[in-house]
C-alpha cells in the first residue's frame, strides 16, 4: 500500500528533515509514526499526501509514484485518502454538514446520496445531532470528530492523522483513538503521527520511531 525507499527530504541546507527513510505499510494496517517535535513526522506525512516532494528517494502510495504523479492528477490521489490535523482545519463559516460534505461535493456526488453519506459519517463519530451547528459551537473533541467524519466520508483507502489528539485532554484523546481503531477495522489503512506514547498503548499498531529525520526503530503492534 505504502512504500518509502531511501527517502531524503531537505527544506533548507544543511539540515535534513528526513534522512534515508525506508518503510512499508501494508493495506489495512494501523501504524504510528512517533518521535519528538522536529523529528520529521509531519514531513513524512506530507510526502504521503504529496504536499511536498522528496529530495531523493521513492515514495509510492497505492498505485501512485509520488514523484512521477503529474500535478493535474494530484486530486485523484487525494481522493483515495483522508487527512486529519491537530488543529482540525474546519471552516468556521460553514455548518458541520457543509464541512463534512465538501469531500463529497468535489466528487460531484448527487445531493440525496451526499446527505445520506454525511449523516452516516457523522453518526459514526456520534455527532449526527449536531449536523446544523457551526464548529465554534462544538468542543475541541467534537471538532476533531467532525474532521474525522470529513476524512472518512468518501470511504478512503488511507487515513493519515497528524497529531490528531494534540489539542485534546486524555479522555477525549482515547475516544478519538477508538474511532481510528474502528475505522481501521472497516479496512482503511490508518497512519497516525504522534509524540504521545500512551496513545499507542491504548490502540496497538506497528510503530515507526523517527529521531532527527532518521528511522530509529520499528516495533510490531
Amino acid at each position: 500500500m505504502i512504500e518509502l525507499v531511501h527517502v531524503w527530504k531537505q527544506y533548507r541546507p544543511p539540515a535534513w528533515a528526513l534522512s534515508d527513510v525506508s518503510l512499508t505499510v501494508k493495506r489495512g494496517e494501523l501504524c504510528y509514526i512517533t518521535g519528538p517535535s522536529g523529528s520529521g513526522k509531519t514531513s513524512l506525512l506530507k510526502l504521503l499526501y504529496r504536499e511536498t516532494l522528496p529530495t531523493l528517494g521513492q515514495v509510492r502510495v497505492g498505485d501512485a509514484d509520488i514523484l512521477r504523479l503529474p500535478g493535474a492528477k494530484l486530486h485523484l490521489l487525494r481522493r483515495t485518502m483522508g487527512v486529519v490535523f491537530q488543529d482540525f482545519r474546519l471552516v468556521p463559516r460553514r455548518r458541520v454538514f457543509d464541512n463534512v460534505a465538501v469531500a463529497l461535493q468535489v466528487l460531484g456526488t448527487p445531493a440525496k446520496e451526499l446527505r445520506r453519506k454525511v449523516f452516516i459519517a457523522l453518526r459514526m463519530v456520534g455527532l449526527h445531532h449536531r449536523i446544523w451547528d457551526y464548529p465554534d459551537a462544538l468542543s475541541s473533541g467534537e471538532q476533531q470528530r467532525v474532521a474525522i467524519a470529513r476524512a472518512v466520508v468518501n470511504n478512503p483507502r488511507l487515513l493519515l492523522a497528524d497529531e490528531p489528539t494534540g489539542n485534546l485532554d486524555p479522555d477525549l484523546a482515547a475516544e478519538i483513538m477508538h474511532l481510528f481503531e474502528e475505522i481501521n477495522r472497516q479496512g482503511t489503512t490508518v497512519i497516525i503521527c504522534t509524540h504521545d506514547r500512551t496513545l499507542i498503548r491504548l490502540t496497538p499498531g506497528r510503530v515507526f520511531a523517527l529521531h532527527e529525520g532518521k528511522l530509529k526503530g520499528k516495533r510490531p503492534g
Binding site: H75, R89, V91, V106
Partner: peptide, 16 residues
C-alpha cells in the same frame, strides 16, 4: 484561503 486548503486536501480539481 482556509477553505481552498481544505478543498485541495479532499481532492478538488483546479476547476472546482
Amino acid at each position: 484561503r482556509d477553505e481552498v486548503e481544505i478543498l485541495r486536501l479532499v481532492g478538488a480539481t483546479n476547476a472546482f
